[in-house]
């Protein structure tokens, strides 16, 4: 019986908030608002060991799937802003806000760091009749409607596909699939003409040679995909990127924010992390503080515009 009391007492003490200046004094929990195995999850799992070393504490990853990220984000937005509750964020977070189906806004989070970014790719099957973006544009000019698969209805890939259609001055027949791999197998099997997906999701099928990217949404070609031309160099005015980062419920103490930024800055220089990120088809592209805030605001506005069109 005595041990139970000791355990219980330990539990109580360990969870009361400690002073901010010796942060962190206990485990930090990161909510991943998707199930294990998604891009967000793999990102956090790759960051976990290095960040644990930098912060000298345990990071506990908690997957809270449901509602396409809405459940986990709602939960995270309501947690105490102590720095012991973090959440993995991405474009999807802003898409959720833009959809108007959720009860949280961009202001409910303090965005601590943007860590990774990857391009959106317009990709086709290796034996597609569209071997270049030019081929596709020519077909569009003749009145063909291109059937484009995206992962998830109303997802950021969906909204991006709409924006690409705009930039190409056409309308796609956009077909939402349940997930990235269903979308990719549909394009490989020739059931649809093209897909719009993040670079990481397409990475394995591109390296298998079955899928070919026609254009990347980066402003310049990336080191990871040197053979994929940008939309811009092919005369289409379209740039965007997928980002992944870390946020906290809004209002965390400044010292905590600084400590986390410092730790993440160190962590992303770790060789093992860089290699993992590269192998996953993403680029380490960090942003913090005001720069990050401006980036988020801009992206949120653009998402909102596309989402309004969808409804």
């Amino acid at each position: 019986m005595k041990t139970i009391f000791v355990l219980a007492a330990g539990l109580l003490i360990s969870s009361t908030s400690a002073l901010a200046n010796d942060y962190p004094t206990r485990n930090i929990e990161i909510i991943v608002p998707f199930s294990a195995g998604g891009g967000n999850d793999v990102f956090v799992r790759a960051l976990q060991p290095v960040l644990e070393r930098e912060l000298d504490t345990n990071l506990v990853v908690r997957n809270v799937p449901g509602g396409g990220g809405a459940v986990g984000l709602t939960q995270a937005s309501r947690l105490p802003a102590t720095g012991y509750n973090l959440v993995a964020v991405s474009d999807g977070t802003l898409t959720q806000v833009a959809s108007g189906n959720v009860a949280f806004g961009v202001d409910d989070f303090t965005f601590i760091a943007k860590v990774l970014q990857e391009p959106y790719l317009l990709a086709v099957s290796q034996d597609s009749e569209y071997q270049t973006l030019e081929d596709m544009q020519a077909a569009i000019a003749e009145g063909t409607t291109v059937r484009v698969g995206v992962s998830g209805v109303g997802s950021s890939a969906h909204l991006t596909a709409l924006a690409i259609a705009d930039a190409l001055e056409t309308e796609f027949s956009t077909i939402p699939f349940d997930g990235g791999s269903e979308t990719i197998s549909a394009v490989m099997g020739g059931h649809i003409d093209a897909v719009v997906l993040g670079g990481a999701e397409l990475r394995s099928s591109m390296s298998s040679g079955r899928v070919k990217a026609l254009a990347t949404s980066y402003p310049e070609r990336s080191d990871a995909l040197p053979d994929v031309p940008t939309f811009q160099e092919q005369g289409v005015d379209f740039t965007t990127s997928v980002f992944r980062g870390i946020a906290a419920p809004s209002g965390i103490p400044e010292e905590v924010n600084d400590r986390l930024v410092e730790a993440i800055e160190q962590a992303v220089q770790d060789e093992q992390f860089l290699r993992s990120a590269g192998n996953l088809g993403t680029d380490v592209e960090t942003a913090y503080g005001e720069e990050l805030e401006a980036f988020i605001q801009d992206l949120a506005e653009r998402m909102q515009q596309q989402a309004d069109r969808l409804n």
Partner: peptide, 10 residues
């Protein structure tokens, strides 16, 4: 992928 193993026919 993290291990650097690329799936595919190759």
């Amino acid at each position: 992928l993290i291990q650097g193993i690329a799936p595919g026919p190759a």
